[in-house]
């Protein structure tokens, strides 16, 4: 017993002060990408084909003429050796805040919208239900366990998810929302739908990680369906491969209107 107390003293108090204090991340952390499209050479569309996961597209304007470049945070894997821009105009910033409420809000457009639109809070009714207590059932549907591992981390004492009233629960009957990871493999589709059906209404759906948003590295596979969209109505998208725990926590707190 004394040994336990002595060790407890040595281990110290470890819970962070997020969101009051911003987290300190590695100087090599790759957060929100930026594309300096103003400096694009005339007629260069290299990035459209060079990104293996098609995270960059050229949107058509209203007349069908090629419009501005658009970077899709939902498809971006934040690759250290991002091959997209031969001019080096695509860089990653240290901004870990990435979560958004709609799929369109994950498109970083030049001209279309300069500012990245972070997740907005739930409406007043849902916020009164979930704002101070949100129970989530997590379903891994083809995830590689990196997303799952860094969601698990939220329950450790560093992040202490419980202090925000958020908890992962075992039964979908006890849950207010389902948090999906993975591209939704053919073999997990029915299990995911059954889990969702077991949730009492109103219920939330959170797509966490590039796979759950748009298939991630497995977008091209016929064995998976390329994300949750089209299967369940998604309320929050958390980009990343995998998302940093602070990216996920930031998204959850924004959803609850607490940031």
């Amino acid at each position: 017993m004394l040994d336990i107390l002595r060790e407890r003293l040595r281990q110290g108090y470890r819970t962070g002060d997020f969101p009051r204090t911003a987290p300190t991340l590695s100087d090599r952390f790759r957060g929100l990408p930026t594309l300096d499209a103003a400096r694009c050479p005339e007629g260069c569309d290299a990035c459209l084909t060079r990104c293996p996961y098609h995270a960059i597209v050229r949107a058509a304007d209203n007349n069908g003429a090629p419009g501005a470049l658009r970077l899709d945070l939902g498809r971006c894997l934040f690759c250290a050796d991002c091959p997209a821009c031969p001019q080096g105009l695509l860089t990653f910033t240290a901004d870990y805040r990435l979560a958004a409420r709609t799929r369109e809000d994950l498109w970083l457009g030049v001209g279309a919208r300069e500012e990245h639109r972070l997740a907005q809070g739930l409406d007043a009714r849902l916020r009164s239900l979930f704002g101070r207590s949100l129970q989530l059932r997590q379903v891994s549907a083809g995830g590689c366990n990196a997303c799952e591992a860094d969601l698990n981390v939220l329950s450790t004492l560093v992040f202490d998810l419980g202090r925000f009233g958020i908890r992962f629960v075992a039964s979908p009957r006890h849950a207010d929302g389902v948090m999906v990871t993975g591209p939704v493999t053919r073999n997990m589709e029915s299990a995911l739908l059954e889990t969702y059906a077991a949730l009492p209404e109103p219920r939330l759906v959170i797509a966490s990680g590039a796979c759950a948003i748009a298939g991630g590295p497995f977008a091209a596979s016929p064995e998976a369906r390329g994300g949750v969209d089209g299967l369940l109505p998604v309320d929050l998208y958390i980009p990343g491969c995998p998302p940093h725990p602070y990216t996920a926590l930031d998204g959850l707190l924004r959803l609850l209107g607490r940031i």
């Binding site: 293996p52 894997l77 690759c79 050796d81 549907a141 995830g143 064995e223």
Partner: peptide, 23 residues
């Protein structure tokens, strides 16, 4: 098992492909 099957080996066949490292 098999619930997580997402066809990794089939995606790697015919490579090397540009996205192999991430897969």
């Amino acid at each position: 098992l098999g619930y997580q099957h997402r066809g990794v080996e089939a995606l790697l066949a015919g490579g090397p492909h540009p996205g192999d490292a991430q897969r």
